[in-house]
């Protein structure tokens, strides 16, 4: 099963559960109050997911390591490499 079909199947399942509960298709009946809560659920879910995504990405951008040390040590190593290679007979232009 591809990721696309996985998503379609999952979304389909969630949607059918939601709609069958709303229209009393199943023998399981839920109260009027429960339906009031249930019907805008997809919207809430989307909003919650959106907020979670933004927060996660924001946090990860903020905590993305800046490897200053790696860049500094690389510069030093480039110097060392040039010296050593020149000693070994490498001709830089």
């Amino acid at each position: 099963m591809t990721k696309l079909t996985e998503w379609i199947v999952l979304a389909g399942l969630a949607f059918s559960l939601w709609i069958t509960l709303l229209v009393d298709f199943f023998p399981i009946r839920i109260s009027y109050e429960a339906k009031e809560v249930l019907w805008p659920m997809p919207v809430y879910a989307l909003i919650a997911f959106g907020c979670y995504s933004l927060a996660t990405i924001g946090y990860r951008v903020a905590t993305f390591n800046d490897c200053l040390e790696a860049s500094k040590s690389l510069k030093q190593e480039i110097k060392d490499a040039r010296e050593d290679l020149t000693r070994k007979g490498y001709k830089f232009d």
């Binding site: 990405i57 993305f64 390591n65 800046d66 490897c67 200053l68 790696a70 860049s71």
Partner: peptide, 23 residues
């Protein structure tokens, strides 16, 4: 993207695109 991994020389925009695309 994890642990002590990271980047050097990226501005905020590039980090945002990278993290967003990765997410």
């Amino acid at each position: 993207y994890i642990g002590s991994g990271g980047v050097f020389g990226w501005d905020l925009r590039r980090k945002l695109i990278s993290r967003g695309a990765n997410y």
